[in-house]
Amino acid sequence: MNTDPAHLSTNEFIKGLWRENPIFVQVLGMCPALAVTNSVINAIAMGLATTFVLIMSSMLVSSLRSFIPRQVRIASYILIIATFVTVAEYFIQAISIELHKNLGAFIALIVVNCLILGRAEAFASKNTIWPAFLDAAGMGLGFTFALICLGGVRELIGNGTLLGYMIFSENYQPWIVMILPGGGFFSLGAWLLLFNWMKSRKERLNLAAENSR
């Protein structure tokens, strides 16, 4: 195991993208993952807003970690997270009224995304600011990546478009179920199947390589 500091910090960043991906591996933050991923643009906006909240709250929690007593930590974390969600909501409104309209009720729901509270509790409260930042950035981008995967499939099959551009011919009859809540579960299930199959294949191959040695 490589233990030099540079390698460790890359590791904090990379783990959220793939090995510990919040959606595909930890299966956290399912509410937005199922609710807003019916188009790619919504998925990107939700992913980036969550990443912003995750990074800011992780850094603040990490810098206040010796100031917050154990007994009131959850209340403190929620207060911090809710603040950054409100900040994000104002900024989204200032950037684009259209985007704010598209995300509608779901921005406020970032508060209850257990991924953010989870990272505050499991990582930021036990580490210094720099690792907390890397961890949050990696997890946030991994979350965004997973939302885009879900949104891509659902928009393509459910609407025949990708990022609003027509992909299939005019005659394509969209499967409306894919942009309904049910479609969220179907595509999440399919992605989890694919990820677990890839993981178990890798383990099998590693085992075979070890045995043949």
Partner: peptide, 17 residues
């Protein structure tokens, strides 16, 4: 310490908002 933490964070958060 609890009162201090909650009140401090509350003030900080309201200022931010």
């Amino acid at each position: 310490p609890m009162i201090r933490a909650l009140a401090g964070i509350g003030i900080l958060c309201s200022l931010l908002i």
